[in-house]
Write a protein that binds this DNA or RNA. Sequence first.
DNA 1: ATTGAGAGCCAC
DNA 2: AAACGTGGCTCTCAAT
Length: 721
Amino acid sequence: MEGLRLNLDALKPAAPKTDAVQATAKRKAKAKTAEPIEESWRKIFAMKLSDADRKRLTEVKAAMDAGKLARDPADCVNKAGNPKAFSKAEALRLWKTLQEAQREETLRQMVENTPDNYWLITTEARLDEFLALLDNEEEIVFDVETTGTDVWNDYIVGHVITAIKADVHAYIPTKHKTDHPQLDNEYVLEKLCPYYEDESIGKLAHNAKFDIHMLDREGIKLRGLTWDTQEAMRLLNENEPSFALKNLVTKYLRIKSDTYGDLFGKIGFDEISDLNIALAYAAKDGDVTRKLRDFQRYQLTKFPEILRYYETVEVPLISVVQKLESTGFNIDLGFAKEYGKEIKAQIDRLYAEIIDELGDININSPAQLKPALEKATGEKLASTDAKKVLKPLAKKYPIIKKLLEYKELFKLYSTYINALPELIDRKTRKLYTNFNQNGAKTGRFSSGGTGVNLQNQPKEARKLFVAPKGYAILGGDWSQQEYRCLAYFSQDPKLVDNYLQGNDLYASIASEVFNKPIEDCGDGSVYRKQAKVIMLAVAYGGGANMLKDAIGITKQEAQKFLDNFFERFPVVKKWVESNQAFVKKHGYVWMDHSQRKRRLPDAKDRNAKGYYSAVYTQSTNARVQGSAAIQTKATMIALQELCDRKTAEGRGEWRIWCVVHDEALLLVPETLTKEDVKDFEDVMVNTYVFGNIPNKTDIEIMRRWGDGMSVDEWFKNKEAV
DNA sequence: ATTGAGAGCCAC
DNA sequence: AAACGTGGCTCTCAAT
């Protein structure tokens, strides 16, 4: 501890340089008899290092070479008093010291260099002066500082607002833990509310959904969002390694900026008692967000279709998603408890039985399971992958069959049935999660962040999600969304015709690929089932390897199926090849109507690892998956408008409840009418159409997710009651 | 106790 | 001739 403090002192920029250098020299002398540090470094860098460690170690070495950092004398000798070699662990400890020193120095400089147009507002007079500026603004930047990033439990401690025309960047602290005077929270909210809620004042933000959530919790409904620099960046370069504001402005605007975590670690912004530090950091956010927006808008004007898509779909979608997230999910706790108990009992029984046969191992550890299974069966196993390796052996070995049963139940229990109730918010008794509208590089949504991914809930787990009393879940599934997209892009006459006639696509494909009469390829037939998987492999751009695992056949057979498919659908084949040629030439592919790119730079680089495989399959997959996502997103905006319209009719509130790629679910009053359902279907089917291919939606109404009934059944039951 | 990597598996 | 669709969470295991 003593040594650490000493070291820190040596690092302080305020300390005379000569002292630091002298101290360093002294320590070097002391460690002279140990292994030379260059030799230690050589050994450390020869080790197998993670990327993060390698980066840190490089920084430490640079600082030490420059004389800015030295070993702690206490670390140079061991207990016996003999010299101790420099180790990786010691180097990583020094990295933390370095970080701390750099952090302090950066903050000091930030405060020292705070521009005059950064206003710290802590008096009513100054706030009035600033609001007078806002009265002349057409567009402002907003950003709230908070105690943390949990939109359900953290809260606002200050507001950042940039008056763009006036070129003033204000920070208005309200809840910092400080002796410095600050304005009252309620007073500030009341004063700012009219501006936040004024549709005619355009709003820019970075990751606006977060700020909209936070304001929503204070009772403020943000209106007039015009730009989100984070979502814009996801269109400009989906491969960006980081979408943190500071990293983007450092990279693209050459404005050196440190991330919040780099400067403050894990503390909430209210912990920053020095309001000058708070101002320097917070006001800069507003400043650079505006600059980044200008840069992005300039870039996007080169692609008018992307810009139009961004402004008409992605930006409005942000508020829609915020509203969706705030709806939350009701979990049937009683059911979860009973169901969980039942599964747990089965798991325990299976575990005991398996242990009995395999010996006392941890079944959940692949490293322990593999040798035990090999011993028990005498088979050489490539892994313990259930689908690829164990399933084919299940018939031969009862122990493997039992193990598969266990694995399935364990997954269901640990990830879903047992985990979901734990994540319920204490205050509202609801489950919340995060939907990231550009979480996938193709533009698909991702979901999760708070422990639950709503997009991968298995059917059994979906049963835990119920409509609150008086409500029903109105769900729509686009029928074969991605295949319709494939038909549209390829214009394969057989596929197009199929959709125009409204025939059973899988049966048609099965009939073609397996050369069987259509009547042998109907519902329930093995041909139809396999055709479905083949189609999936084609749409996902997968090869024979993926297909063989999916239907449990040999690679040769899978390849033959694919060959057959492409032989029978040569137009699809041509389209797939054209995508490959395009990506090879340009390094990217277009989604529908040039609204979005998927950049695959490896395609232009013959030496890249994935040159012959990944980018080729991705070139087709991205176009299909990404265009389907555009359909979903455009429709979500129309669905929110529908919800607003229906709610305004005064028959109860309509909300978007959940979205799962090609599935949209609304929470609606259980008194909904057939006409309401018709309006929903109309929005689903007609909002976004892939050219000449009509959409189709399967609709269900449910009280429990995944446990729905057809519209006819629902209303028949209603009449019966 | 916390962190990070890897294996595995759920969804569309 | 070749051939890795997009995500997120839980577990183990090794490292601090």
